[in-house]
């Protein structure tokens, strides 16, 4: 065991390499554009929902038929805002999105009791649960896409493909070198169906 690792073990700090990838922030992750946009969208959603929960916690609790939960909803609103800000500020938002998944689970556990007893607003609770399930699915997809993203190569393994043309001469010199090839009519379509200008030029 290396000196650093044994020091870390002694200090009780977890070794980052032993944590699941969805809990670790790694700026080298090469996120795809769609995943990046999805994370940004969830960031905006988180802040928006958080502000709404803080401002309208009481109204939301009444709509759910759970008026005693107003303070909890407002606290969850603060959590949402913090998560949104975390996603916004992180170079790699993976652990923050994973935190959203945990938050979703907490939300569902909080709302579920609304289905018990004689709550007259059970329909609203069901709507909220369906919405929460949808948001959870999106959060899970985003967290998985982020944690599965490939790492950018270090400078040491950066390979140079600028000379990989596959042609003996320059690419420009090879343009049209296979014009002698006659495309079979059964592959490119019968003469009568080909563009008029080309067949009649």
């Amino acid at each position: 065991m290396s000196e650093t690792m044994s020091q870390r073990r002694r200090s009780g700090a977890p070794d980052r390499s032993e944590l699941p990838s969805y809990l670790v922030s790694d700026p080298r992750r090469r996120r795809g554009p769609s995943t990046r946009e999805l994370a940004q969208g969830l960031c905006c959603f988180s802040i928006g929902l958080g502000l709404t929960e803080v401002a309208c916690g009481g109204a939301i609790a009444r709509w759910l038929g759970m008026p005693r939960s107003a303070a909890i909803i407002q606290a969850y609103g603060v959590r949402e805002i913090l998560q949104g800000v975390g996603i916004l500020g992180a170079s790699d938002p993976t652990p923050w999105i994973s935190a959203r998944v945990a938050g979703d689970a907490l939300d569902i556990v909080t709302v579920l009791p609304g289905l018990e007893g004689h709550n007259p607003r059970k329909d609203n609770v069901l709507i909220a649960l369906v919405a929460l399930a949808g948001v959870t699915a999106v959060d899970v997809i985003c967290a998985r896409s982020l944690s599965d993203a490939p790492l950018a190569p270090s400078e040491k393994v950066r390979r140079d493909y600028r000379r990989r043309s596959g042609f003996r001469r320059g690419a420009e010199a090879m343009r049209g070198a296979a014009r002698d090839f006659k495309p079979p009519p059964d592959i490119i379509g019968p003469e009568a169906m080909r563009p008029w200008v080309l067949t009649n030029a």
């Binding site: 554009p33 769609s34 995943t35 946009e37 999805l38 969208g41």
Partner: peptide, 10 residues
């Protein structure tokens, strides 16, 4: 395929 548009990909 990965769409560059987040909503479409999601």
């Amino acid at each position: 395929a990965h769409s560059p548009r987040a909503l479409e990909h999601a």
